[in-house]
Amino acid sequence: MANNKNVRYLNPIAIDTKSERYCRFRKKGFKYIDYKDGDFLLMLVNEQGKIMPRRLTGTSLKYQRRVGQAIKKARHIALLPYVADQLH
């Protein structure tokens, strides 16, 4: 039975270092999220056109609400789809 001394891994196992998630809106100092800017909002929406949750994007509650409002307005004026199959 190989004792664990000479058990070498092919490559170091990547213990997923918990990358410190930050709210990019607060970091960059966003003052206003524009509902007319379709390409920017596309980054905050997943393939089906749904709004990305905070636990994935790490945004703070204050900006997540504004993002939500902006995306809903953009959907109303048909800049973003309500539902899409493959968006990006």
Partner: peptide, 15 residues
């Protein structure tokens, strides 16, 4: 076929 009126707060105006 579609319209949307929004009030602009000071950040929106500055933007």
């Amino acid at each position: 076929i579609r319209f949307l009126t929004t009030k602009m707060d000071k950040h929106h105006i500055a933007y």
